[in-house]
């Protein structure tokens, strides 16, 4: 049984410390996977972060043994968090590069950023997402699963143990809230 599968089983069996062992493992695997991809693909190619998460899942989890969505949810929660950290780290780095923070780093023409996700936006989103998670943990989790682990609303609903309709409501709200927040509108007085 793989380490991750073992941990997932431990979570199912109620081991309170098992979940925290998951993140570092998944994080490592994602970094490794990404590195491998980068080595094999042309430098200007972009990486699909969510595809990476799914590949990590296939590699780390004995699918035959883990069919219940409950433990898959734990995996994707960890994976989403791991991917978030990786992407945010990268975004920070890119940003400091742009500002000339470290001129010896990789030249800018090689870090062709994906048009839709400038690092500023990513960092802003992350900040907003942190706030949303504080105010509404379920909505925050849902966004993380969708955005960083590439789950569909239905899949995320399963992972979070929500009804699909509820999940869509959370998603609708979270989408609007984050959009509003990142667009620069001040938080509501309570936020």
């Amino acid at each position: 049984m793989s380490d991750v599968t073992r941990i997932l089983c431990a979570i199912e069996l109620g081991d309170p410390h098992a979940a925290e062992q998951l993140l570092p493992l998944v994080y490592e695997e994602l970094r490794k996977l990404a590195a491998q991809k980068m080595a094999h693909e042309a430098p200007d190619q972009t990486l699909q972060a969510t595809a990476l998460v799914h590949e990590a899942y296939v590699r780390l989890v004995d699918v035959e043994k883990v069919q219940q969505w409950n433990s898959r949810g734990h995996f994707f929660a960890a994976a989403a968090e791991a991917m978030r950290r990786i992407l945010i780290d990268r975004a920070r780095e890119k940003l400091s590069l742009k500002r000339g923070g470290d001129w010896r780093r990789v030249p800018l023409d090689r870090v062709d950023l994906q048009a839709g996700t400038p690092p500023e936006d990513l960092l802003a989103l992350d900040e907003a997402l942190a706030e949303l998670t504080r105010l509404d943990p379920t909505a925050g989790q849902l966004v993380k699963l969708r955005y960083f682990a590439g789950l569909s609303v239905e899949e995320a609903a399963d992972a979070l143990n929500l009804g699909v309709a509820t999940a869509y409501r959370h998603w609708t709200f979270a989408r609007a809230w984050l959009h509003n927040r990142v667009a620069g509108n001040p938080p509501d007085s309570a936020g």
Binding site: A34, A35, L47, I86, R90, T117, R175
Partner: peptide, 19 residues
């Protein structure tokens, strides 16, 4: 055009890894 909409197919910036 919300922040999340722009990333329907979320892609990582080039070079998650030191190129």
């Amino acid at each position: 055009e919300g922040i999340l909409d722009r990333n329907e197919a979320l892609k990582a910036p080039t070079g998650i890894y030191e190129s």
